[in-house]
């Protein structure tokens, strides 16, 4: 269970960190605020998962693990986030599309988790799903706007799709720690594909063909990007252990 919690926490933390790179750099002020608000929601979700994981680990091992030590003091190979989350932010189209693909997935996942037998996981999911609803609505509108927009916006989101699609399978391939949790990955993939394809049609986009799917993040096998994110994110705690605001 703790591995699964860390997987959920790591994915939302790393995606939050990626989106927060837009802070002060968004295309216009309102959209800068939107993407950083989403970043904040993801960070909140990740804190909930880390706090719960820390509680379980501390109970089991009798040591004091905290949400901060889990986020700031683990090495890249210990992170269990999906690869999709750690990819560079790219241009606006790439950031938008990644958020959309992830949010649709997260909504379906939380729909399942909110009925989970573990009441704390269920509570976190039931809380998070309200926020995810906004994330989907916002990112979906942008995917359609860019796809069915100008020649340039279409080309950009099409390019983003050909890059990101290779990282979507991993969302639905259970890691060992996900096998006995009562999550139906096949159903999730079916629902997700239906939703995504409907939006792509409206956005005049199509799923790229002959893509070799990439996996590994859930088991700690990451791209070199993760190391760079963590170097930046963990620098303060690594340099000044125990520093507090």
């Amino acid at each position: 269970m703790t591995d699964y919690l860390l997987h959920l926490a790591d994915t939302t933390l790393i995606l939050s960190q990626r989106n927060s790179e837009w802070c002060g750099h968004g295309p216009i002020l309102e959209q800068d605020i939107a993407i950083t608000n989403i970043s904040l929601d993801l960070l909140g979700q990740s804190r909930n998962f880390y706090q719960y994981a820390a509680e379980l680990i501390s109970q089991k091992n009798g040591n004091t693990v905290t949400e901060d030590s889990l986020a700031y003091l683990r090495d890249p190979s210990e992170f269990k986030n999906v690869l999709l989350a750690e990819l560079p932010r790219g241009d606006w189209a790439n950031t938008i599309l990644r958020q959309y693909l992830f949010s649709e997935f997260q909504f379906i996942l939380f729909e399942q988790l909110k009925n989970h037998s573990d009441t704390q996981i269920a509570a976190i999911a039931a809380k998070g799903i309200k926020e995810t609803t906004y994330h989907i609505r916002w990112s979906k509108e942008w995917v359609i706007r860019l796809g069915d927009g100008t020649a340039e916006s279409h080309d950009r989101i099409k390019a983003a799709l050909s890059t990101l699609w290779a990282y979507t399978d991993e969302l639905f391939i259970p890691a060992e720690y996900e096998v006995n949790l009562g999550i139906d990955f096949d159903i999730m993939k079916k629902i997700w594909l239906e939703k995504v394809i409907a939006v792509f049609e409206e956005a005049t986009l199509s799923i790229p063909e002959n893509i070799v799917m990439q996996t590994g993040g859930k088991n700690g096998l990451h791209t070199s990007e993760l190391k760079l994110i963590l170097t930046e994110m963990q620098q303060l705690q690594r340099t000044y252990p125990g520093a507090e605001w």
Binding site: E30, Q31, I33, A34, N37, D41, R137, W138
Partner: peptide
């Protein structure tokens, strides 16, 4: 104007 404002 935007679904996201000055606070969450």
């Amino acid at each position: 104007i935007s679904q996201f404002g000055s606070t969450a």
